[in-house]
């Protein structure tokens, strides 16, 4: 019905956070040099951009699916379920269950992805060290 709204809200928030983080990292880079390289090889802003792409991509395609099924319309209130209170209650229930789980799953997958990426980035150094030894 409108489950994609929850990941859409998360996508908006994460996009704003990613932009702010990128600015912060740029300022830090200009003043102190590449500090992020010492802590973690992948900057947080880049990791956040992965999450924004994952969320926005999913939201756009799900929005298309909802338009396909006639659940989203181009006129106010945009969601057909808002037409009557029974459908609206069902829609809010779906947002609270399916929508929240969608956002949680995407975020969980992103966290795993970041952990794996950190391991992969560190891996070649170990391999090189082994070759040298």
């Amino acid at each position: 019905m409108a489950c994609f709204v929850v990941p859409a809200v998360e996508a908006i928030v994460v996009t704003a956070v990613a932009k702010a983080e990128e600015k912060k990292e740029m300022k830090l880079f200009e003043t102190k040099g590449n500090v992020t390289q010492e802590k973690s090889s992948i900057p947080l802003s880049r990791k956040l951009k992965w999450l924004t792409k994952l969320l926005w991509g999913g939201v756009i395609l799900l929005l298309f699916e909802h338009i396909w099924h006639g659940e989203v319309v181009p006129w106010f209130p945009f969601l057909t379920a808002m037409g009557n209170p029974i459908d609206a209650a069902e829609m809010f229930h779906e947002m609270a269950t399916v929508g929240v789980l969608m956002a949680v799953l995407c975020t969980a997958v992103w966290i795993i992805m970041c952990k794996v990426a950190d391991v992969i980035v560190k891996r070649p150094e170990v391999a090189k060290a082994k070759v040298k030894a």
Partner: peptide
């Protein structure tokens, strides 16, 4: 292509939740 990958995986994850329900 990374952008296309993210789009497809994002939608797949969301539809997977839909499928579970």
């Amino acid at each position: 292509l990374g952008f296309l990958c993210f789009m497809f995986w994002g939608a797949s994850l969301m539809w997977m939740v839909d499928a579970i329900f």
